[in-house]
Design a protein around this nucleic acid. Structure first.
Lengths: 230, 230
DNA sequence: TCTCGTATGATTGTATACAATTATACGAGA
DNA sequence: TCTCGTATAATTGTATACAATCATACGAGA
């Protein structure tokens, strides 16, 4: 048992602080708040019907997650992500997803393998039908399966962190162009490599998969939505 | 400018919460508290002469840093690191330090290069004299220089995070065996690669540097000090 | 008109009081 | 003796009150 649990598991979703934390994170990722917008403790508290105490604690967590920046005695501000930040994240993720695929090849269970196959199969179906929403859902899930299959709390933690962080840019990328089907083809290749026990290939493919995702995003130019100044 | 600042910069070291946060982190990393030991809000507060409020906020941050685990309505417990966690971290760091060295090769400034050279030179001196304390200090600093030189807030953030996290196992590794001088030799090679603009070599060397550090740690068996059950 | 200092209000930082939950001790009953 | 339920204590969760800090407005003086 690792003593290092993924924060989603640790954080209490049902305490007031937990609710504020999750709600705020969702709102920020969904773009409800502008970048560099100031979040005021009382306002947030009133909006959610709680006092400042749980709000403040949630702020401290969001700060460490990198979603807001707290300037002492001044206020809390929604952080901006620059284009370079996004690029860096994808390069880092590329490496880590590769490592994850390698470890998944070595540690994946029968059940996880089956879910992965089902995921690819279902995605292929929805791709044909043009169900973009389901496709995006399955895409996320594919990566989560791999994160779990790598059998490393530490790596899983890191990857989920990044995943969350770039969600605001990624969210609309899959729905655009024809990245969805292309992405799923790559998933299938990764899956086959894992299944055949070829860790080197799996790593290489997962690596490339991330870079492709990034390049597609740049090509379609959608990430600029979030990097423009408000 | 990245909106994503490293937490050490963000966290106010001079507020009560900041003091509690840093003090607690130091204490945990230094092994003042046993693994799985319960941290009580009032006790910590009284020890530092503050109320529960700043202690609680510090707890939330430490939770996200992975140093403690908070179970709702129960308490805060110092997290344990298993041997596998340590191994995973070093493997992940190996990749990221490699990437960092690559980017540093591309972005290092003249001043940073000079400090790096001075660092290696000084370390060579202290190695000869057997000054283990200074050697450990310089070793840490070398990596920090590289983190800054890579010119990526995102990567710097990640690496500093990991660095902190394994500090409790790493701390005594350098002082043991003859890893210190060996480590510095590797620093020098990395530095030369960066200086000559050979990014591939720099990446490869930094990669290997981490793995060597890990293997040395395993060999000397010192990490078990922290993974034994209290 | 411009600059600067002060006063006022707004906001964050901290302490404390109270509510809710959990752990523990103890005794009744089988 | 063992089990279980209740009462009590301890601890966390939240709300509120107060202190400290920061932003803004306004007016005096040059």
């Amino acid at each position: 048992m690792s003593g290092y649990d993924v924060k989603q598991e640790v954080t209490d979703k049902y305490s007031l602080r937990g609710r504020v934390f999750h709600k705020l994170r969702e709102d920020i990722l969904n773009g409800k708040y502008e970048e560099h917008e100031e979040l005021k403790e009382v306002a947030i508290g009133e909006e959610m019907g709680v006092s400042r105490t749980p709000v403040r604690e949630a702020f401290r967590q969001l700060e460490l997650e990198g979603l807001i920046q707290i300037i002492p005695n001044k206020g809390a501000y929604v952080t901006g992500i620059t284009e370079k930040d996004v690029k860096d994240i994808y390069m880092i993720r590329s490496l880590l997803e590769g490592l994850c695929a390698r470890w998944a090849t070595e540690h994946i269970t029968k059940e996880q393998m089956e879910e992965m196959e089902e995921n690819v199969y279902l995605a292929k179906f929805h791709a044909q039908k043009g169900h973009l929403e389901q496709l995006a859902e399955l895409d996320n899930r594919f990566h989560d399966i791999m994160y779990e299959a790598c059998d490393s709390k530490m790596l899983e933690h890191q990857l989920k962190d990044f995943h969350q962080y770039v969600l605001r840019v990624r969210k609309r990328t899959l729905s655009s162009a024809n990245r969805g089907p292309k992405s799923n083809e790559e998933h299938e290749q990764i899956m086959e490599a894992i299944k055949s026990g070829n860790a080197d290939l799996a790593e290489q493919l997962a690596n490339r998969h991330m870079i492709n995702a990034y390049e597609n995003m740049v090509k379609s130019g959608l990430h600029e939505i979030y990097t423009k100044k408000g």
